[in-house]
Structure formats: structure tokens, C-alpha cells
Amino acid sequence: MTDKRIYVTSVSSSDVHGFSKQNRDHIQLLTGLGVEGDAHMGVTVKHRSRVAVDPTQPNLRQVHLIHAELFDELTEKGFSVAAGDMGENIATRGIDLLSLPQRTRLHIGDEAIVEVTGLRNPCKQIDDFQKGLLHAVLDRDADGGLIRKAGIMSIVLRGGRVQRDDAIRVELPALPHIKLERV
């Protein structure tokens, strides 16, 4: 029987700006800030390349989510990628994160709510982690459009504790839906 649950498979954080994050028993999401103790936590942007352009821009990348199914796909292609390796805070299973529209709300566990802001734009650091991985997380659709498969970004609307096996409930925004773009 196929598991139809939508749930958290792992949580990760890091207090330093690096590529991978350490797996944790749980993480604490803080309203309007992100993951407690994570280097990317804050009201304004924390990603170094974006800070260099404009350090006052809002942080639309407070929480990085990635679908664990991507780890399965990458393993089949010969890569060795585990939870936390790609810098995500939350890995999920049972949901096509990439197809969600902007402003989708994900209710995670008993309290936390994050709002989807856009796609993670994979960068050269992915190839620094494992050669060829950048190409593996990019694809093309039938029309030749670029598909970024390295996860989605979100902001914290309501804080709370998040841990492995927490259920996720999807709340779609009102129509019309806006397709995710890179943030």
C-alpha cells in the first residue's frame, strides 16, 4: 500500500553560513524570523549574495523546504545526498512542493505555519558539494522552460516546534494561483 501521508522526514539547521545543515531532533520556527539559531534567520535577507546587493530587502527565504523524493531521485542517479546535505531546514514526503502556488500555507505539526514565497535557485555551491549535482537538480519542461528542483523557500507566519514525522496540511491561497518563481 502507498503511503498517502504528507509529513516531515527530517529537520536541520546551522548557525554558520555553509552549504549543508546538521540534522536535529527538532527545530523551533519563530514568527517572522525563521529557524531559531539558523544563520538565515531574520527579518531582512541573510543570504550573502543578496545582502551584498541590498541588505534591507525582506527575508523571503527564512525556511528552506525540500521534498525527500528528490533525495531518492538523486540516489538513483548515483549521487549520495542525505537529509540536511542540501542546506534545507525541513525535508518533506508526500507533497509536490514545486507545484505549489505562491502564498500556499503549510501547517506543520501542532502549531507552525509557513507561507511559500518561491523556488530555491540552485547555485554553484551545489557542484562544490558534489560535482554534477547542479545539473541533476535542474531540468526542462516540455516547452524548454527551466525547472528548479532544489526546493522551495518560505516565511514563518506562526512559530512552533517542528520535528520528524510531523504531519503537514496544505492550505492553498485564493484563486488565481501564482506560479512559483525563484526568490
Rank of each mutant, 00 (worst) to 15 (best):
G34K: 05
K77T: 06
V63R: 03
T92Q: 04
R161G: 06
D72R: 07
G42D: 00
R103Q: 12
Q130V: 08
S20C: 11
L106Q: 01
M1P: 08
A83D: 10
I168K: 05
K21G: 01
T9G: 04
Q102K: 14
D72M: 03
K4M: 13
Y7I: 09
M41S: 13
A167N: 10
R93N: 07
G118V: 09
Q62V: 07
A52K: 15
A150V: 06
P101L: 00
P173Y: 04
P55D: 14
R103V: 04
H40E: 00
F71L: 15
F129A: 01
G151N: 03
G34A: 06
D166L: 02
E69H: 02
I178V: 14
G37D: 03
L70V: 05
I152D: 01
G151L: 04
S12A: 14
A39L: 00
I6F: 06
K46G: 00
E76R: 15
V51N: 06
S10I: 04
V8C: 02
D127N: 15
D96A: 09
R140K: 15
I155D: 07
K77A: 10
G87V: 05
R164A: 11
S80L: 12
K77V: 04
D25E: 13
L146I: 14
T2D: 06
A82C: 11
P101I: 03
L180A: 05
V116I: 15
L97F: 07
R182Q: 12
I95M: 13
P101Q: 05
Y7D: 09
R120G: 03
L30H: 01
D3C: 09
R120E: 04
T31V: 01
V43F: 05
A82P: 02
E111M: 02
H107L: 14
K124M: 10
Q125V: 15
L65H: 08
D139Q: 11
Q102R: 14
D165S: 13
L70G: 11
L98A: 04
V63L: 00
D166G: 02
V114I: 11
I66T: 10
Q130Y: 07
K149N: 03
L33D: 10
T44C: 08
L106C: 04
V16F: 13
R48M: 12
T117K: 08
S12L: 02
R103A: 11
A174F: 10
K149T: 03
T31F: 01
K77L: 11
G151W: 01
D141V: 05
V53Y: 08
L60Q: 08
K131R: 14
K179L: 13
I27Q: 02
K131I: 13
R182F: 10
R103H: 14
E115G: 01
R24H: 11
S49D: 10
F19E: 00
R140P: 05
L138P: 03
A91T: 13
L97W: 07
